[in-house]
Amino acid sequence: MQGHSRIFDLDLILMAILGAFTAAFLIDSRSYNLTAALFPRLISTISLILILWTITVRCWKLFHKTQDVSQSREELSAKQEGSMVWYISLVTMVSYYLLIHILGFTLVTLIYLLALPLLLGYKKYKIVFITGILWTAGFLYVFTYILHARLPEGLMGIFFKWLTSGL
């Protein structure tokens, strides 16, 4: 179990990802001319050395670390419960982005502003409803009438336009 947690140490995973990212840059820079490749090669090599150094230091620390076994099961389960919030936040953000392409920016914004406070445990429904409507309306007004910007309509917006143009 102890060895398992050492391998899945978040610092190590993060540094490994950053190392892979830097290595990809180093490999990709091989195809460029000398001027274009000079800085990327130099910087990616230095960064890789620093990342390897950080990983080595971290491994050394983990090797010498004695795990605190006194942590109770309750504490662990509470931690796991709390850690789900970042997951909810991230999933809703990605869904927000993906749904822009289907439902359009305005409708997704309204749904997001109404749903996320409730998902995060805010129970004052009236306030959530009123602010959600007001923020979306304000945003729509500013973008449409002041900025004259085209907001992504999504597939639904295009379909709706097609439907109304047919009538």
Binding site: T22, I43, S47, L50
Partner: peptide, 18 residues
């Protein structure tokens, strides 16, 4: 406190700028 990691992150920032 995390000099090596900080410098590496600076390097990654530079790479992103390229």
């Amino acid at each position: 406190g995390k000099v090596a990691a900080g410098l590496a992150l600076g390097g990654i920032g530079l790479l992103l700028a390229f």
